[in-house]
Simulated assay, not measured.
Amino acid sequence: MRIRGLAAPGGVLASAAAVVAFVAVVDPNEPGNYPTCPFLALTGFQCPGCGALRTLHALAHGQFGTAIALNVFVVSMVPVLAFFWLRWTVARARGRPARRKAGEPRVIWGLFAGVMCFWLIRNLPFGAFLAA
Rank of each mutant, 00 (worst) to 15 (best):
N71S: 07
G49R: 00
A52G: 10
V80D: 04
L56V: 15
S15Q: 10
M77K: 04
A67I: 01
C50L: 01
G44E: 10
G44Q: 08
L59I: 13
P31H: 01
P79E: 05
P28Y: 02
F45K: 03
L42V: 15
E30F: 08
R54P: 00
V75K: 03
T55K: 02
V20W: 07
V19N: 05
V80H: 03
H57S: 09
A82E: 07
H57A: 08
V74A: 10
L59Q: 12
F45W: 07
S76H: 03
C37W: 07
N33P: 06
N29G: 13
F73K: 04
N71K: 02
A58L: 09
C47V: 04
G62N: 09
V74K: 01
V78P: 02
V23G: 01
G44C: 06
L42N: 15
A58S: 15
V20F: 10
L56D: 02
H57C: 10
M77Y: 08
V19C: 10
Q46M: 11
G51L: 00
L59D: 12
S15I: 13
A67W: 00
Y34S: 04
N33H: 14
G51V: 00
A58C: 14
V26C: 04
L40H: 15
C47Y: 01
C50E: 00
V20K: 04
G62M: 08
G44V: 09
A17Y: 08
P28T: 02
A67D: 02
V25P: 01
T55W: 00
A58Y: 04
C47Q: 02
F39H: 14
F73T: 09
V20P: 04
L40T: 13
A41N: 13
A17Q: 08
M77T: 15
F45S: 12
F64Q: 08
V78Y: 07
I68G: 01
V72E: 05
M77G: 09
C50H: 00
C47G: 03
A24N: 03
D27R: 01
V26P: 01
V19H: 06
Q46Y: 14
P31V: 04
T55I: 03
A82Q: 09
V23D: 00
V25K: 08
A60K: 06
P35T: 12
V74Q: 02
V26G: 01
T43G: 10
Q63D: 14
S15R: 12
E30K: 07
G62E: 06
T43R: 06
G32L: 12
E30C: 09
L59A: 14
A58W: 04
G49M: 02
G49T: 07
N71D: 02
S15E: 08
S76T: 14
G49Q: 00
V19G: 05
A60G: 15
L40K: 14
V19T: 12
N71M: 03
N33W: 07
R54L: 03
A18H: 07
C37N: 11
P38S: 15
N29Q: 11
A67P: 07
A58I: 11
V26R: 05
